[in-house]
Amino acid sequence: MSDVASLTDLIHRAREGDEGALRGVFDAAYVDLRALASARLSRSGRGAPLDTTALVHESYLRFANAGKLAITDRQHFMRYASHVMRSVIVDMVRASRAERRGGNAPHVTLNTGVSNSAAPGEEEIIRVHEALEELAAVDQRLVQVVEMRYFAGMTEPEIASALGVTDRTVRRDWEKARLLLARALQ
């Protein structure tokens, strides 16, 4: 129970701009979000799309119900959740790449003409991530939109609600962000 209590506290402190608290939220929700991100990664592009928002919301509710979080904290949580998912996904891709290169595990490097697939997707993810790191310095909201849309897979209305802006603004932000990213990734 103390976990939940501290989460509430962390979220509040995070809203006041406390970086350490922000990381605390990250850590506490990590297990949930990691599972979510993993599911998203392996399912994306095929089969029924995962309703990330619903799942994140579910996760939020598990904490919120126990810790009496206000409804405004939900928006906050959604933003953090998408940020966390981005980190988790990037970590997973990195780990996977390292392993594919053989890492340090002897005998397991099986690069005998068989691993030409998968790399482009990983590359795209890493490069979007890196471009966002730069974008964060000039336009924080565009970064959030991309995190929610691309990494967390949220819909435009969901993003609008999480950010407290209109659907149209989200659409426009997404459009501008994609133009910038298209150039960055060329």
């Binding site: 993993s38 399912r43 994306s44 592009g45 997973m92 594919r100 990213l181």
Partner: peptide, 18 residues
């Protein structure tokens, strides 16, 4: 045009998590 037609970044690419 390209961003729109190709649905650029429309979906997270599928990656085999190893």
């Amino acid at each position: 045009a390209v961003v729109e037609t190709a649905d650029f970044l429309g979906n997270l690419p599928r990656v085999d998590i190893l």
